[in-house]
């Protein structure tokens, strides 16, 4: 019988592997997922992984070594479509937070000293679209089960995936939380893409921005609002850069143009 199932691969670069772990955590759907597609590679859950042609590659983690750059380029060559899977792949993640390359080199030195890198050479952490074209972005730390299953099902049925254009505040209000920003906390809800179910604010913890910036976010207004509430420029920038990594630099450049 001809196998016409979609050929899919899950790949992990540098990160906590939380996104792939989330897939395995879809307990009710796991068998259906494995039945619905032909999984060629998924190092976390199976052996005998093959490196053939793929319809879809889901790449988790950011790029932090030269070897990973090669690996990533190879995946791109083999796959018809590539998904940046999780915040590290989409934005670079926490490991990309040191936005100044000099600062990165300094930190590398502090951590590794004079160690010689023999296996591969480290590079400053970057999102995967710094090296290859990406077809779909699915941010999350880790990605949400609901968004992943919806994405997966749509692709499976040949329909384009949905966009999630809302900030965290929308779900946060659905969950009837008192606004932490209004209360004077450094909450990044209005700037951050939704999908987490506002899990931090639900527990009275301000949003850390782990889904990355939402389209149309008004960073300038939030920045000045936080300043007015008594946070230092450094504190605000640090928190914003935490997860949004290298991609938030655009915003900072934009902010630097604004009057102080």
């Amino acid at each position: 019988m001809k196998n016409d199932k979609l050929k899919i691969g899950f790949y992990e670069l540098t990160g906590c592997a939380g996104d792939c772990l989330l897939v395995t955590d879809c307990e009710m759907e796991l068998i259906d997922i494995f039945n619905a597609v032909d999984i060629q590679s998924f190092a976390m859950v199976m052996s005998n992984n093959t490196d053939g042609e793929l319809d879809l590659a889901l790449v988790e983690g950011s790029v932090t070594t030269e070897k990973e750059i090669e690996e990533l380029k190879d995946i791109r060559k083999r796959a018809k479509a590539v998904v940046a899977f999780g915040t590290c792949a989409v934005l670079g993640g926490v490991q990309a937070r040191f936005i100044d390359p000099k600062e990165w080199e300094k930190n590398l030195k502090i951590v590794y000293g004079n160690t010689e890198f023999t296996h591969t050479k480290p590079v400053q952490s970057k999102p995967i679209d710094a090296f290859i074209d990406v077809d779909f972005y699915l941010p999350g730390c880790p990605v949400s089960k609901e968004q992943f299953l919806n994405f997966f099902t749509r692709i499976l049925k040949g329909n384009p995936p949905e966009h999630y254009p809302n900030p965290v505040c929308v779900t946060c209000k659905y969950n009837e939380n008192d606004c932490l920003l209004k209360k004077g906390e450094l909450c990044l809800g209005p700037l951050t893409a939704d999908g987490c179910g506002s899990i931090c604010p639900n527990h009275n913890i301000p949003c850390n921005g782990c889904w990355g910036p939402v389209e149309g976010a008004n960073v300038t207004s939030e920045f000045y609002l936080l300043k007015e509430k008594g946070f230092s420029v450094d504190e605000i920038k640090k928190k914003m850069a935490n997860f949004s990594g290298t991609k938030i630099t655009d915003y900072f450049q934009q902010l630097d143009k604004e009057p102080k």
Partner: peptide
């Protein structure tokens, strides 16, 4: 418009 955070909360509440 400059200040609005476009968070949608005014509508939701």
């Amino acid at each position: 418009g400059q200040a609005c955070l476009a968070c949608g909360s005014c509508s939701n509440v």
